[in-house]
């Protein structure tokens, strides 16, 4: 036997209205979980992309000199070797790689098409430099000076412009995902508050009767709110678990795409805390919304 007045009056599990509101909470929790999962994935990808680019400099030794004359392979090799030696001995530089001609051909071939042969085409020499500190301006300037001294037309590309665009773009995506999660949770809260208000109105005679029996507003309110916490909490947990299952399925389906185009998606252990926090947050916010609605409604009853 159960004797929780509000449970039966407000959120009777067999009631259509209650089933509907629980379904809404489950669906909203699924959407919130997907949004949070998306935000975490984006944050991880953003970090991966930025880390991959931020600590790297690409040096291009042009195929032609400053006057438009094509340099010989020997000249390019000589310049590249000198640059390699200078950069390798520079403190703060952890790695220097000269891309061979075949790698450079692979890089330019998508733009030239298969019909065009690059065998006799003058191609620049590209040198990849890895720094120990990604944003060391002094080191970057030192590298510019050394490269310029070896070969004035050479270009030192720090990828800052691309990096700034990447940061801006990923931030917009992050904000969109966060906004979606926030709006979804807000919809959930509004739905629960509306359901509570409707139930209070529907059961006004019963509430009057509880008052007659000596129940205070606080007692009735607490009973209602407790039932909200139990029911909404359960629905939020179910929704979060379902959302995580969808994410897992999505990750499995997208596995090949990740391998081909994207850095590996992997959340940190700490990121999983969000999926514990999410149902608790939904429940807590619904608790406050229900409590506010109940006490305000009871206060206006005669």
């Amino acid at each position: 036997m159960i004797l929780r007045p509000a449970k039966k009056m407000l959120l009777n599990s067999g009631d259509d209205g209650t089933r509907f509101i629980m379904l809404v909470v489950v669906m909203m929790s699924v959407l919130s979980t997907l949004a949070v999962g998306g935000a975490l994935t984006l944050a991880h990808l953003r970090s991966t992309w930025v880390d991959a680019v931020a600590g790297h400099i690409t040096i291009e030794i042009p195929a032609s000199d400053g006057q438009g004359l094509v340099r010989s392979p020997d000249t390019l090799h000589e310049k590249a070797t000198a640059a390699y030696a200078a950069l390798s001995s520079t403190p703060g530089v952890t790695r220097v790689d000269i891309l061979d001609r075949r790698d450079v051909e692979k890089l330019v071939s998508p733009w030239l098409g298969e019909a065009v042969s690059t065998n006799d085409m003058p191609l620049p020499v590209l040198i990849g430099v890895t720094l120990s500190a990604p944003n060391d301006e002094a080191l970057t300037q030192s590298i510019r000076s050394k490269v310029s001294a070896i070969d004035p037309p050479s270009i030192v590309e720090t990828h800052q412009s691309w990096l700034a665009d990447l940061r801006r773009f990923s931030l917009i995506l992050l904000l969109a995902a966060g906004g979606m999660a926030t709006i979804t949770i807000a919809c959930c809260i509004v739905a629960v508050a509306g359901a509570v208000a409707a139930r209070l109105s529907e059961h006004q005679n019963d509430i009057d009767l509880l008052h007659v029996m000596g129940a205070t507003d606080a007692y009735i309110g607490q009973e209602f709110v407790d039932s909200v916490v139990r029911s909404v909490g359960g629905a939020a947990v179910i929704g979060t678990v379902l959302g995580l299952i969808f994410i897992k399925i999505g990750a499995a389906v997208a596995g090949e795409i990740q391998n081909a185009m994207l850095p590996a998606m992997a959340w940190k252990m700490a990121d999983n805390l969000w999926f514990l926090i999410l149902p608790a947050l939904v429940t807590l916010l619904c608790y406050f919304a229900a409590r506010f609605t109940v006490l305000r409604s009871l206060g206006t009853m005669p």
Binding site: M1, L3, P5, K8, N12, L210, M213, G214
Partner: peptide
């Protein structure tokens, strides 16, 4: 209260107390 049994209806005031 229509959703409560006779017994629960009688129990209510005591539980409220």
């Amino acid at each position: 209260l229509p959703e409560f049994s006779a017994l629960e209806n009688v129990m209510l005031p005591m539980m409220i107390a």
